[in-house]
Design a protein around this nucleic acid. Structure first.
Lengths: 348, 348
DNA sequence: AATTAGCACTCCAATGTGTTGAGTGCTAAC
DNA sequence: GTTAGCACTCAACACATTGGAGTGCTAATT
């Protein structure tokens, strides 16, 4: 059977209607729909075909039709219309971000959380944001300071002024001179490298240059790399979890509980939030139902977008909602937001 | 009417039963209760009295009785029995914390989050933990580093090895010598002071000592204080939010949504989590229903305990559950945990 | 050949109608 | 003071009834 133009139009009409109402839509409804001049009976035939083709299904004999995942897929891939941008709101949020960024380096976190909150509020769905992955970022500055006896504070600054702190416990004390020497060595050897490069090549090279402190230098280096490279997975923030209660198909006790649980745990989100990172940078991805590969989200759709924090360093923003979410609205919201993140983060 | 011993025993029996089952308890149930040798009829009379006195009420004519907030209050204030400690579980959890603490000193946040998770898992309720309030914490080490032209990175370490970073944008560049001088000055003047003390007294004193750099020093100092002193409220972590779905009286859509919302927002929790901080340090507090002063928690009870992070620096741990929570279990869990936190945090 | 009116059929959802049982309050007896 | 006995109440559950929305099929229409 062929998916001709009329079938497409009907499918689109059904889906749009279902997005709005959440109720199965019947042939009469579609028939009344503006520019169709077909009787319910004809529509019924077409809808039966669409069901046979796997794009629609009826929950039961005497109900209307509901899109299948395949139906949504087709809709998302071929039937979306660009929504016109809302300029006013956008610039306001940008200003606020600008402000925060300037003042508090160690607070990207706050900015992102804020972002998530805004996104959730705008879309009425749940939002997810991941911290930009630091381990491809270049090292700009490293410094070791003695705090207490045998306790070193290591401060590292990456391009884009991401600051990381790490405590190193040594089993011996260092004098001022050694410290100075180590600091020089650190900066000379490591500056401009990504953490991955450091991880692979540097250890031996640095050790050889360190002379008498070779062993110490290696120890410190390892400690740094271990601490910073191995963040236990990416950091993820969510916001608007309770928005799921707006959608009856998600809000029954069990589903809601599982869903909020995965949002709280965050572990299950890491796959979605790191897929294709850096590959196609402007990539917006839509996951429908099972495509999320997360069981508790099989009644949800997820849309993710990559933002570029700085050259080569990416993070992701996502929106989680019911499968009948307003794809167009969410897509445009994500475009706005990633656009804005790009602009802000790479500006200075 | 007087609350004689028998009435108390009956009230206690009713409450205990209700804590277990969540169902209104009837006179027959109590009559069968071990060491009462009274007929249901007698119990009924007593229960009617207890209702009149405001400790019990019936949801409807032919249901059993349920404790009122006043009933719970009485129970909590006068009828709790210390639970014999469960040593096995306790030591197990302690071991785990020990483990975490040793590995990552600079990650109080992680430890606390883990704590919250454990507490939620053990109690099957929702847990809340607040970061120790830093602004009473003493400064241990301060350092300014030039990053880019006119951009200074300020690193501050507080007692307990809390590290804070802050970026300062200057309109001029500093040479190495000035920087060194400033660093010395900073450490000499500020070490050992709390952020509050710095806020109030130091600005002028430091300025006078800075000589030619007086203006610069003031600028930097202000910038530091502004950035660190003005944390927007206390930081709060929650865990086990979805445990509320275990308790039917909390898990209907509306209630659950509101509740999880307040957990997500965290703002409404700040009052509960900062009340009496530092006053009576071992204070464990029980809030029942309306006593929480949070509307969405009017069907919940909250128990909070203060932990001492370091001399004079406190944080709070809390458990949020249905009013019919197992008060004894939660109290002992909190005692365990705050005991352990004390021990761990002040150890080195 | 495609469209449509007509009709029988299906099934959910809403509503109403017992029925059951747990629990009460009251009274009178112990 | 305690208790047995009894009439009464009321939520909860199980069924039956109804109404309506929507379908699929067939036969008539264009």
């Amino acid at each position: 059977m062929e998916l001709d133009e009329r079938k497409k139009r009907i499918l689109k009409a059904v889906i749009k209607n279902y997005l709005d109402t959440g109720e199965p839509v019947g042939s009469r409804t579609i028939s009344k729909y503006a520019d169709f001049s077909l009787s319910p009976a004809t529509i019924r035939n077409e809808m039966a075909d669409l069901e046979e083709m796997g794009y629609l299904f009826s929950p039961h004999t005497s109900a209307g039709r509901v899109p299948t995942d395949a139906g949504y897929r087709l809709y998302v891939d071929e039937m979306l219309e660009e929504k016109s941008e809302e300029l006013s709101r956008k610039s306001e949020s940008l200003d606020r971000m600008q402000d925060i960024m300037d003042k508090r380096v160690d607070r990207i976190e706050e900015v992102l959380k804020d972002m998530a909150k805004m996104l959730a509020a705008n879309t009425q769905y749940t939002s997810v944001v991941s911290m930009p992955q630091a381990n491809r970022n270049r090292l700009k500055f490293a410094q070791i300071t003695a705090l207490d006896a045998g306790k070193l504070l290591c401060t590292i600054v990456l391009e884009g002024n991401i600051v990381k702190n790490h405590m190193i416990n040594l089993n011996r004390e260092l004098n001022q001179e050694t410290l100075l020497k180590l600091n020089l060595l650190l900066n000379n050897t490591l500056n401009g490298l990504t953490l991955q490069e450091i991880n692979f090549d540097m250890a031996s090279q640095m050790a050889s240059q360190a002379g008498e402190h070779a062993e110490l230098a290696t120890e410190i280096l390892n400690s740094i790399v271990a601490a910073i490279g191995s963040e236990d997975g990416i950091e993820i923030f969510t916001s608007g979890a309770t928005n799921i209660f707006r959608y009856p198909e998600l809000s029954d006790s069990n589903r809601a509980s599982e869903l909020i649980s995965t949002l709280e745990e965050k572990k299950l989100l890491t796959n979605l939030m790191s897929e294709d990172l850096g590959e196609n940078t402007t990539g917006i991805k839509v996951y429908i139902g099972e495509e999320t590969s997360v069981n508790s989200m099989k009644d949800c759709s997820v849309i993710t977008a990559t933002y570029e924090f700085e050259d080569g360093v990416y993070g992701k923003v996502g929106v989680i909602g019911p499968k009948r979410m307003d794809y167009e609205k969410v897509l445009s919201a994500l475009k706005d937001v990633t656009g804005s993140l790009d602009k802000k983060f790479t500006k200075d």
